[in-house]
């Protein structure tokens, strides 16, 4: 299955990246390119919506860590929306729940962002 990656930027300057499909060694480069492209366009506050991700492996985790490193270099942020237990489990066993902000919805992430300003 192909990976579908789309994005939009809110009035608040948050860029939401919706990802659909399987993120693995074959498809992860597409997500990596999208993150690099957004950073190159000056989008440094990213929210990756993973609610339609059916599979995530360590290659995908590596891409997200790489994206976080890139946006942090510009004082930016990369957070996630994810409520799927099987995806969350991968973040937990690698300890990456301590590295990424993980939200239950886009709305919740937006609210927290407004509250932090």
């Amino acid at each position: 299955m192909d990976l579908k990656v789309n994005d939009y930027t809110t009035d608040d300057g948050l860029t939401v990246i919706t990802v659909e499909g399987e993120i693995d060694v074959y498809t992860a480069p597409k997500l990596r390119e999208k993150l690099i492209d957004l950073v190159n366009k000056g989008k440094f506050h990213l929210l990756v919506d993973m609610e339609k991700v059916e599979f995530l492996d360590s290659t995908g985790l590596g891409v997200l860590v790489g994206g976080l490193k890139r946006v942090r270099a510009h004082d930016g942020s990369l957070e996630l929306v994810c409520t799927q237990e099987r995806i969350l489990k991968i973040f937990r066993i690698t300890g990456l729940t301590k590295v990424f902000g993980i939200h239950t919805s886009i709305a919740e992430a937006e609210e927290k962002r407004k509250g932090a300003k």
């Binding site: 492996d57 360590s58 985790l61 590596g62 991968i90 066993i93 690698t94």
Partner: peptide
């Protein structure tokens, strides 16, 4: 990370 996931 892959080996970390396998171990987990």
């Amino acid at each position: 990370l892959g080996l970390a996931v396998i171990e987990g």
